[in-house]
């Protein structure tokens, strides 16, 4: 048993799931939301030489994806440490 108590185990998994769900919500909004579902609305906004929706679909969402993974790694490592289940 890696966790100190059974409650810790449950709490760890709950923290994990809530982090993943939050990040996936952002993932969905920037790609499927801004790039596909609301692309026509956002295209009315000019962003440098781009229409904003088009920019999200072909550039912006990809940058966000990279950021999301590194945020996940950083936060998840902190959660592991907090519950004492990280690797030495």
């Amino acid at each position: 048993m890696a966790f100190k108590t059974e409650e810790d185990k449950v709490a760890y998994w709950k923290d994990n799931i809530s982090l993943v769900l939050k990040l996936l919500a952002v993932w969905f909004v920037v790609s499927f939301g801004c790039g596909i579902l609301f692309v026509d609305v956002l295209n009315n906004i000019q962003f440098f030489g781009f229409k904003l929706g088009f920019w999200f679909a072909q550039q912006g969402a990809i940058y966000m994806f990279v950021v999301l993974i590194f945020v996940y790694v950083y936060k998840m490592n902190a959660i592991d440490k907090h519950y004492g289940v990280d690797e030495e």
Partner: peptide
Amino acid sequence: AVYLLGWTGGYVLLAL
């Protein structure tokens, strides 16, 4: 964009 989003967005699922 289907290729651009599709072939990069999958890595978020994979990582998380």
